[in-house]
């Protein structure tokens, strides 16, 4: 089976501090990492790979620096890594991102199993996975919380939705997006790190992918961010401390009183 994991490189949120003045994130000096939720997709893929004769590729669209994220994926257990990088890809919205990823998959494919994270911690749309699946014309199962069985003729997964849990069986090819509940990602091993250091990261640009400039990057993006503003986050809290605490509790009680259940025993 051929397995592909879609990996995005994002700013390291662990290092992000909030500017107390205006509530924006301070991004200077912040490193980048594999999107934390994508590690769960990668872990799922590695486990499947270890269970049989499978080939595991990771792909990312991003700047040359995203090579580091791909190396980390190899250190964890991916066989090969492809970086889709080109100045013309810059400013892509989710549609143009999915277009670029699906071009690579179309060219290299078919992949039997494609895995994505639930969402990226920066753009946070969760759209790239299902858009890519639709462009490829493959079934898509999102919010996968458990991989139950990886069979010859299909995969059985559980997905968590608002009103319960569903179990689906889908034949290959299929695209899954997984949540963090699916597993605990492993850490790279020393041996893996060594392998990653010397690994060849394959690179492809728009020409290699056969993509017209009008379909990629900012030019190919139907959406435009026209304004960014920083909401004033802070509220003016009335604080109750020490002897005033009683008053604060009374206020909270008054606030909740309308919600008291009538037939409370």
């Amino acid at each position: 089976m051929r397995i592909l994991v879609l990996l995005k490189q994002v700013p390291d949120t662990d290092e992000v501090k909030l500017d107390p003045e205006n509530g924006t994130m301070i991004r200077e000096g912040v490193g980048t990492v594999i999107n934390p939720l994508d590690l769960h997709a990668l872990e799922s893929a590695i486990r499947i790979k270890e269970s049989g004769e499978h080939e595991l590729t990771v792909v990312s669209m991003g700047p040359p620096a995203a090579e580091e994220a791909l190396r980390e994926a190899i250190a964890m257990g991916a066989d090969r890594a492809v970086l889709l990088t080109d100045r013309k890809f810059a400013g892509a919205d989710t549609w143009a991102t999915a277009k670029t990823l699906s071009a690579m998959i179309g060219l290299e494919g078919p992949y039997d199993l494609i895995l994505a994270g639930e969402k990226a911690t920066d753009g946070e749309t969760g759209q790239v996975g299902p858009e890519t699946g639709a462009m490829l014309g493959v079934p898509v199962i999102t919010y996968v919380s458990r991989i139950i069985e990886v069979g010859e003729d299909g995969i059985v997964v559980e997905r968590e939705v608002e009103d319960g849990r569903e179990t689906w069986k889908v034949p290959y090819p299929v695209l899954l997006s997984v949540t963090k509940n699916v597993n605990e990602p492993r850490l790279p091993t020393l041996k893996g790190k060594k392998k990653a250091r010397n690994a060849n990261i394959e690179k492809m640009g728009s020409e290699a992918l056969g993509l017209e400039p009008s379909t990629i990057g900012l030019m190919g993006s139907p959406t435009r961010v026209v304004k960014i503003n920083t909401p004033k986050l802070s509220r003016q809290a009335k604080l109750y401390e020490g002897s005033e605490l009683i008053e604060g509790i009374a206020r909270l009680k008054a606030l909740l009183k309308p919600y008291l259940e009538v037939n409370h025993e």
């Binding site: 924006t24 994130m25 435009r224 960014i228 503003n229």
Partner: peptide
């Protein structure tokens, strides 16, 4: 909201 709710982005599909 984006980036952990720290910014509000206004987006158009012109």
């Amino acid at each position: 909201p984006a980036i952990g709710g720290n910014i509000m982005a206004t987006i158009k599909t012109p």
